[in-house]
């Protein structure tokens, strides 16, 4: 009964948030709309971070790598070959997935904080490549003047900030919905089971490395698609969009939102990125101070929101004891939830 109420409540809040997001461009000015569109792209990367950190148990600081791959693939495609949005999202997702697949051998056997370090290295490597491969990426100057996108063959190009925002919203909502559906399938359940007790899952004949690799590639595809949304929202990209601070802010946003919940991660990442952009405008020069203080305060205010990810490498000989963490709770809908 109580669970029913909570579920309905979550659904209601999610619906309200969605309605708010749809009407937002008619309420706020163009600049805020453009900022919102970029925040949506970053929040989608946050979802991929949550998929790895919370659901698969592999905390990552490197989702900016497939994000960057998708963004640059989309930018090059958009300025040279096709301005059709569907094609761009598909190619960007493919590029992100390909990059993630390349790094699978690095991360598949590692767990916990070691994944954090490996992905950090991968992210830094990708930023270095972006800064030096001038003929394709434009070096540290980045790529500008990317033509406006048309969502589908025959449709007009998206010329206004509102149109671009709505396009970003539709793509992001579709992908988040797909992730939520995916997590309800057997594969999603097995992924969480592998996070909670890998030894037992292996013993019962499941191939955990395959599951982990699949999650890694899927997260890469989502981050890549988010990269194409960034290109649409910003119409300009440079290596500065994909630096260490971006991945750190995303991971922390996801941690604040509750790593195992997609909705929470979405809200957490969006809040952190929005706070950064908003503070940057309101308090020029002091934004990091307030943001840092907010992080510190969050640690004390939300003690239970941050214990979901298992960051210590799992002991192989000791059965994990988590009697207080029923996996059922993670069947959350799209509802944003801030665990308190």
């Amino acid at each position: 009964m109580r669970n029913e109420v909570i579920r309905w409540g979550r659904g209601g809040v999610a619906a309200l948030v969605l309605v708010g997001l749809v009407v937002a461009p008619w309420v706020v000015d163009d600049y805020t709309t453009a900022i919102l569109a970029r925040t949506l792209a970053l929040a989608l990367v946050g979802v991929s971070v949550a998929l790895l950190t919370g659901v698969a148990g592999m905390p990552t600081l490197g989702q900016t790598a497939p994000y960057a791959a998708g963004a640059y693939a989309c930018a090059v495609l958009g300025s040279r070959i096709s301005d059709v949005g569907v094609v761009q999202v598909a190619v960007a997702a493919g590029a992100g997935a390909a990059l993630a697949a390349l790094t699978v051998p690095l991360v598949v056997h590692a767990r916990g904080v070691i994944v954090l370090m490996i992905t950090l290295a991968v992210g830094e490597l990708v930023v270095t490549v972006l800064g030096r491969w001038r003929s394709v990426t434009g070096g540290t100057d980045g790529l500008a003047g990317i033509p406006a996108v048309r969502p589908f063959w025959g449709l007009p190009v998206l010329a206004t900030d509102q149109a671009r925002y709505l396009y970003t919203l539709v793509v992001a909502a579709t992908l988040v919905g797909a992730v939520l559906l995916l997590l309800r399938t057997r594969a999603g359940l097995l992924l969480r089971a592998g996070r909670d007790d890998e030894t037992r899952l292996r013993a019962s004949g499941h191939r955990v490395p395959l599951l982990v690799s699949g999650a890694h590639v899927a997260a890469g595809a989502i981050a890549g698609a988010a990269g194409s949304l960034l290109v649409v929202a910003q119409q300009y990209i440079s290596p500065a969009d994909f630096g260490f601070d971006t991945s750190a802010l995303l991971l922390l946003g996801v941690v604040i939102g509750g790593t195992a919940s997609v909705g929470g991660a979405l809200v957490g990442a969006a809040l952190v990125i929005a706070a950064r952009d908003w503070l940057f405008g309101v308090l020029p020069g002091h934004a990091p101070l307030v943001l840092g203080a907010l992080f510190v305060a969050t640690v004390y205010l939300l003690p239970s929101g941050v214990d979901r990810a298992r960051l210590r490498p799992r002991p192989t000989d000791v059965p994990p004891v988590h009697p207080d963490r029923p996996a059922v709770r993670e069947h959350a809908g799209a509802a944003p939830e801030l665990r308190t």
Partner: peptide
């Protein structure tokens, strides 16, 4: 818990 520490120390 490294993630909590990361959050705090990064802040």
């Amino acid at each position: 818990n490294h993630l909590t520490q990361a959050l705090l120390t990064f802040g």
